[in-house]
């Protein structure tokens, strides 16, 4: 006997993500799910953004890594509350892990929470966390064809950060080709060119955060 089900496979995660979203909203937190390949500069970017958030706002970070607390130690060293999730091999964070991490972090707003997902351009795509915005970080040394090779993650980005633009003179990377590749899969997300090393473009990213938080009904 055939039984029709037609139910989303990740509905348990999606439902938890909705609960997380309600929890974040009640705490007046704008939550950014930061996704990128390993080494694109997720932690460096988060640290640069944290530096530029006014001190009257709360700040927090959930660090996802397969192993180690290297990234969380970097965040803790600048005095920002941070919780480390070690997935022990799993390649993405899910909404349940974030819920447990929030119990540890005990962060309340108004302010910003950054969730650094596992370095991976494939697996985090399917798992919503309850975020206010998805931020995808690409970097110049990875090449300009990444949006074509990993369309799904770029398609769901609310903002795309291109990091390490200080390396443009050294690397064969075509900004126009990158932008055209992004636009094929995502017509709306702004692309912001930055360098965490020189600080170029960070102010534009911070401005985007502020505008997005207002548009999302999080009062910051």
């Amino acid at each position: 006997m055939r039984v029709s089900v037609r139910k989303s496979i990740l509905s348990a995660n999606d439902e938890q993500a909705e609960r997380n979203k309600a929890r974040f909203k009640a705490s007046q937190l704008m939550v950014i799910n930061v996704m990128a390949s390993p080494g694109a500069g997720k932690t460096s970017l988060i640290m640069r953004l944290l530096e530029n958030i006014p001190s009257e706002l709360s700040r927090g970070v959930i660090e996802g890594d397969v192993a180690s607390s290297i990234d969380a130690d970097r965040i803790a060293a600048v005095g920002v509350p941070v919780t480390q999730i070690n997935t022990g091999g799993a390649c993405h964070l899910d909404a349940f892990m974030v819920d447990r991490a929030m119990d540890d972090l005990k962060l309340s707003g108004p302010g910003y929470l950054f969730i650094e997902n596992i370095g991976n351009l494939i697996c985090p795509t399917d798992f919503r966390l309850g975020e206010t915005a998805n931020m995808v970080v690409a970097s110049v040394p990875e090449g300009d064809d990444k949006p074509i090779k990993y369309p799904a993650i770029f398609a769901q980005a609310d903002i795309i950060i291109l990091n390490k633009i200080d390396l443009l003179p050294l690397i064969d990377f075509n900004l126009q080709a990158f932008s055209a590749a992004v636009r094929a899969v995502n017509e709306e997300a702004p692309i912001i060119n930055i360098s965490c090393t020189t600080g170029e473009g960070i102010d534009t990213a911070v401005r985007w955060l502020r505008e997005k938080s207002m548009g999302s009904g999080v009062y910051i």
Binding site: R6, K7, R183
Partner: peptide
């Protein structure tokens, strides 16, 4: 522009 291709559901058993 790219559209669709994001479905992930259990159709039937």
């Amino acid at each position: 522009r790219l559209e669709g291709g994001k479905a992930l559901y259990l159709d039937s058993v």
